[in-house]
Amino acid sequence: MKAFEPKIVAFCCHYCALAAADVAGKMGFQIPSNIRIIRVLCTGKVEVLHILKAFEAGADGVVVIGCKFGECYFKEGNFRAAKKVERVQSLIEEVGLEGERVKFDFVPGPGAKKFAAILSDMTEKVKSMGPNPLGQ
């Protein structure tokens, strides 16, 4: 049987996470191939519904990666994103999915190593939880 490779959607802030992704590639850090990166101008723009739609479409996990608290280019976008992620956790728990399938994290602009680590950790965590039981 083919090993389970989780599909993970990563909403990445243009100003930090995406820059980190770019540097990570250049520095040769391994980013799991199962990650689908979606660039957003600010994580504050990621709506609850965007994350729910990712699960509806069969994502096994979602990670929202923004700037460190206090360093958001738009001042408070990352605080908003963290709150929305918390809300999604409770919404998906209500339907019987594990809340840990979605998380918020942050990287500093040049944090290529941390960026790769966040995605690897999420991949491992979702692997341990198994596929999205919605059975896409």
Binding site: K53, E56, V95, G96, P133, G135
Partner: peptide, 10 residues
């Protein structure tokens, strides 16, 4: 609606 779709699909 999204939650309902997820719950029914599950």
């Amino acid at each position: 609606a999204s939650q309902l779709r997820l719950a029914f699909k599950k």
